[in-house]
Design a binder for these strands. Sequence first.
DNA 1: CTGGGGAGGGGGCCC
DNA 2: GGGGCCCCCTCCCCA
Length: 371
Amino acid sequence: MSDLLRYIDYDHKATFLKMLNQQRMEGEHCDVVVVVENIEFRAHRCVLAACSNYFKKLFKKQSDEDNSIVELDFIRSDIFEEVLNYMYTARLAVRKKDINMMMSSGQILGINFLDNLCTQKRELTNMKTRENQAPGDHGMRAQDAILKELAMEEVRKNSFYDQGMDGMGPGGSHVSQPHNYSTNMGKDPHSHGWGSSSSSDMKLEYLLYGHRDHGSCQAPGTKPMDHNAKKERLLTANRPYGCEHCPKAFTTAAHLKEHLKIHSGFKPHRCVVCGKAFIRGPDLKRHERVHSNERPFGCQMCEKAFKHKSHLKDHERQHRGERPFNCGSCDKAFIKASDLKRHWNTMHSGNPRRQMSLSPAASQQEIIACS
DNA sequence: CTGGGGAGGGGGCCC
DNA sequence: GGGGCCCCCTCCCCA
């Protein structure tokens, strides 16, 4: 289930879990029956709605007292069984000959990542065939597939909701009761906790793509620490909002949301000169000084000017003769923290007495994380 | 020639 | 969006 949750809009995840827990407390009963080719499949309404735009829209139109039987005639029972299995386990098993059918069914149901996974799987299957390898495990972990995609190409903008809705063509689907599929989908953020699709597209996107770089949150140069130990340490420091992808934790939900963008790999701010992309607008703005050569941070004591304010700060220490970064393993001192780090890595990294200290002038700052 | 350090530059990302 | 801190990379100088 945890893998599945990666694909659900961040804002909806809590609601989804709450509903699931509530249903568990009520005895694990499934509250909807889906009939396909006269075969009944029992499922949780919230699971279906969380994974499929089709069901999300469908259940939005129904009150809880409405019929809890849904009949589908646009999908094969064995395909639906696998789709259902995917919804509950985030594992997808599909025969090669059924990939197209699975993809079209996924489109109609508004399960876009299912479509992506089938594409991946088809390519993988073709590759295996070409390489004349014995067929392996057809079950493909959803996150692995997406991580594979991220490793192979840059992240493209891929509208999740829109494609899902477009896939539901007229006459392509119907259920036992009449429903108007073109109204109100996602427009009421309060009824079930499903937020507005327009405002959550970006969040959906990065959650859809999952974690891009598992090692990115580890401070460079630090000894790898156990993930749980790190998380525990961070969470105890009055940071209740922990990231589920890395050990970091934050003081507010807004900071966590901002941080989650890092894991998406989604960089909407692109430099028109060199094409380099950034997560944040201000970072792009700063980058543009590379091309414009604008140097807004001038030194008061000499003619020099800098593109980064922090560079000016480093530079000003030269004028003041400050060397606040002291090596704990020898008597060297440095103007810049990175110089100290480089020195320590080259001169003392084999030294078990791994210590660096700061002069009183810099003791307020936590300069370098060093295990 | 090589290694260590000074200094500038650019990016990541937390607050 | 801005401020700020930290990191790494690179060029250069010098012992």
